[in-house]
Amino acid sequence: MHAPLGARSQMQFWIIQGLNSLSLGGLLFLLSSGFSLIFGLMRLANLTHGAFFMLGTYFAAVAMRTYTGLNIWVTALGAGLVVAAIGGLFERLVLTRLKTNPLGQVLVTLGMSFIISDACLVLWGGDSIPVPTPHNLQAPTRLFGFVFPTYRLVLVGCAVATAIALYLLMDRTRLGAMIRAGVDDRQMARAVGIPVSNLFTIVFCLGAGIAGAGGVLGGPILSAYPGLDADMLPLALIVVILGGIGSLLGAFVGSFIIGFVYTFGTALFPELAYIILFLPMIFVIAFRPQGLFGRVGA
C-alpha cells in the first residue's frame, strides 16, 4: 500500500514503480526469450532453463569474486558461451536420443535441472553470493529529482538490444528463415532439405546461451543462491504462455506485461503477490490458449 501523501509522492510512486516494471520486464525477456525459441522449434518445455540461467549467475558470481574488476559484459559473453556449450552437449547426448518420446524429454530436462542445482550447491556451497554491480553504474541516476539505480536502466537497454539482435537473426538471416520454417511446419521443412536436427542443436545452444548471459546480467539484482533456478523457471513459463509459444514478439511483450503486473501487484496488493502474477496466465489459457501472439495450430 503506497502513500498518497501529496501529488509529488504519488508521482514518484508511479514513476519509480514504472521504471521497476521496465527493468523487471527486461530481466524477464533475457530469461524467457531463449525458452521461447526452444519451445517454438522443438516443442519442448525445457525445464532446465532456470538452471541454465542460474549457472550463468553463479558463473558471474564466482568469476567476479575471483578476479575483481572483471568486466560484466565480458563475463556475460563468456558465461553465454559456456552455458551454450553445456546446452549443446546436453541436447546432442541426451535429448536427441529421446526424440520419439516427448514426455521423456521433458522429464529429462527436469532431472537435468536438479543435477545442475545440486552440482552448484556442492561446488559453491549454500550461501548467497553477490554479483557486483559494474563500478561505473553503481551511482544511482537522478531523474527529475527521483533516484533510480542506473544498472536497472541499462538492463532494459540490454533486453531491447537482445530483442533487436534476435529479431534480425530470425527475420534477416538464412538461419533465421530455416528456424522459422521449422517452427511453422517441421515435416515440410525436412522435406525441402532443411537439416532440422542440426537446427535443434543450434537453437538449443542459442537458447541456453541467452539464458546463461541473462543470468550474468541479472546477477547484480538477484545474486547467485541455491533455489534461484526454481524461482526463475515459473516466471519464464508464465511469460511464454502469456506471450505465445515460439513468438519472439510474444516473449518481449509478455515479459513487460508480467514486469508491470508483478511490480504494481506487489506494490498495491502485497498480500496477493502470487495470485496477481498467475491470474493473467489463467485468463490467457482459458480464453486464448495460443497466447497473445501465438499462432493457432502452430
Partner: peptide
Amino acid sequence: TPLATPDYGSYVA
C-alpha cells in the same frame, strides 16, 4: 515479502 522473491525493487520503492 514472499519467501521466493526474485526482485526486491518494487518493495524497496
